[in-house]
């Protein structure tokens, strides 16, 4: 199991600090309904994500967590509802948003290197046709350094471990230099060292005033890692500060069984 210790994690108790909640909404979701083949996977979701939070989206398998992120990012088309990023539709705000898909969503045997994958993060700001140049390469190298992967820059991506691949994905999001980061299960299948490295970077992002939204599976670590949480199971169950709403009542409502997670004080 994970053997992280408290001192490995910077400011390990975010729920005790005041979140950098400035009253500005980073993301606003209104009446969002998404269906696959007529079966709703997200039902009438209203969600307000304040700027500057580090938020976990939790819920059982099939709750629509990834679907919610993909709908916010216009990768999926909802059948109803709307999404705004800082008050404007996503199309107009692409450059403010970075996305880390699930690691399993790509083919890691693709013939490319770690550096090249990170460079892909710069494509959005380049737009169509324009090629990445020295400036983009420099940014990618800096992002690799931040996630501790600079030594692996020329490594073919299939030669990296699961944790290293996840760090590459994180670096690719960092290079976008966005205001809002969406991450789909960044801790899935990574070793303890990588998990700590990733959470420290996420906390740094929040400190810099960024908004970070993470699909998360490990309920035990929610109070330790995040300051904001959204419970989701097809419908939105609750959203708010971890210290106020991360309780057995909401967990039971979300997971449908009598859930007991004692929050360590």
């Amino acid at each position: 199991m994970k053997n992280k210790t408290e001192e490995n994690i910077n400011d390990s108790e975010p729920n005790k600090e005041t979140p950098a909640y400035s009253g500005v909404l980073a993301v606003k979701v209104d009446d969002l309904t998404v269906a696959y083949n007529y079966k709703p996977v997200l039902w009438d979701i209203d969600l307000e994500i304040p700027e500057g939070v580090l938020m976990a989206i939790v819920g059982p398998n099939g709750a629509g967590k990834s679907t919610l992120i993909k709908s916010i990012l216009s990768i999926l088309k909802p059948i109803a509802g709307s999404v705004t990023i800082y008050g404007k539709p996503y199309d107009k705000q692409r450059k403010l948003v970075a996305y880390v898909p699930q690691k399993g969503s790509v083919d890691w045997d693709f013939p490319t290197t770690a550096l090249d994958v990170v460079m892909m993060g710069t494509y959005g700001s380049l737009g169509w046709i324009k090629r990445p140049r020295q400036k983009e390469k420099k940014a990618a190298l800096e992002a690799l350094e931040k996630v501790g992967m600079l030594a692996f820059k020329s490594r073919q991506i299939s030669q990296l471990s699961g944790g290293q691949q996840q760090r590459i994905f994180l670096a690719r999001a960092l290079v976008q230099n966005a205001s809002i980061y969406f991450m789909d299960e960044p801790f899935q299948g990574v070793d303890a060292t990588t998990e700590i490295a990733i959470i420290n970077i996420l906390k740094e992002l929040r400190k810099a005033g960024k908004t970070v939204i993470v699909v998360h599976h490990d309920l035990q670590t929610v109070p330790e890692y995040f300051d904001w949480v959204t419970f989701l199971n097809v419908k939105k169950i609750a959203t708010g500060p971890v210290k106020d709403i991360f309780n057995d009542d909401n967990l039971t409502k979300t997971y449908g069984i009598n859930y007991k997670v004692s929050i360590q004080e």
Partner: peptide, 9 residues
């Protein structure tokens, strides 16, 4: 390589 990222960008 990554359809999802392409779409989001």
């Amino acid at each position: 390589f990554d359809k999802g990222l392409a779409a989001s960008l």
